[in-house]
Simulated scan of single mutants.
Amino acid sequence: MIKMYVMETCPDCAYVEKQVEGNPNFEVIDIGKHVRNLKQFIKLRDTHPAFDEAKAVGDLGIPCYVLEDGTVTLYSKDVGLEPRPQDEGAACSLDGRGC
């Protein structure tokens, strides 16, 4: 099962979350629903090098995927999902370009 860290208010997350509705291969973990989920995500973000680039540009690093073998990726295509087109609607970063 692929763990998918998202947040309800993130447009990138909402876009890919729709693609996995009813798919038992994905466990959707909303980091805004419970502090335990947020802490779990922050621990991963603070310790895994997959987030280095996202942190360098001020992005949070969601959606984030953790594969069964422990591989962490921030790229939806790596798990067979289509990312939200960047010219489609709002963004949640401070500079308005990403999440």
Rank of each mutant, 00 (worst) to 15 (best):
P63M: 02
Y15V: 03
D95H: 02
A54R: 06
V57K: 13
K33H: 00
K18R: 15
S76D: 05
A56C: 06
K55V: 13
A91G: 00
G89K: 08
P11W: 00
V72I: 14
V35Y: 02
V28P: 02
T9R: 12
D30W: 07
P63R: 07
D95A: 04
F51C: 06
R97P: 00
G22L: 08
I62A: 02
P49M: 08
G80D: 09
E82L: 14
L94N: 14
I31P: 02
Y65V: 12
R97N: 07
T9N: 12
D52V: 10
R84A: 09
H34T: 12
K33Y: 00
E21L: 15
C64M: 05
L94S: 15
L74F: 10
K39P: 02
E8L: 11
A90M: 10
G61P: 07
M1R: 05
A14D: 12
A14M: 13
E53Y: 12
N23E: 10
E82S: 14
Y5T: 02
C10V: 06
G89W: 08
L38Y: 13
A90L: 12
G58I: 07
C99F: 06
A54Q: 04
K18F: 09
D30F: 12
V57M: 11
R36K: 14
V6I: 14
T47H: 09
H48K: 01
I62P: 01
D12W: 12
F26H: 08
E88Q: 14
A56T: 09
V72M: 09
Q86S: 15
I42C: 09
V16L: 01
I42R: 14
E53W: 09
T47C: 05
A56E: 08
K43Q: 13
K18Y: 06
P24H: 06
A54P: 03
M7C: 07
I2Y: 06
G22R: 03
R45W: 05
F51Y: 11
D30V: 08
I62Q: 00
K55E: 11
Q40S: 15
D59C: 00
P83G: 02
N25D: 13
L74A: 11
P11R: 00
G32F: 05
P49R: 11
E88D: 14
G58F: 04
E17C: 00
V6D: 00
A91Q: 07
A90K: 13
P85Q: 02
D12F: 14
K77R: 15
V16F: 00
G58N: 08
R45A: 06
S93I: 03
A90N: 09
E68M: 11
A91I: 00
D12S: 11
L94T: 15
S76W: 02
G80N: 10
Y75I: 15
I29K: 12
D59T: 00
D30G: 09
V28T: 12
P83F: 00
V57L: 11
Q86R: 15
N25T: 04
Q40A: 15
G96R: 05
G22H: 02
Y15R: 01
I29E: 10
Q19G: 11
Y15T: 04
G89N: 08
A14V: 14
H34G: 08
G61E: 01
L67T: 07
G22M: 04
D52S: 11
D78G: 06
D87G: 14
P63V: 04
C92W: 06
R97Y: 03
I31Y: 04
C64D: 03
P11T: 00
P49I: 10
P85F: 01
F26I: 09
E27W: 01
E8K: 14
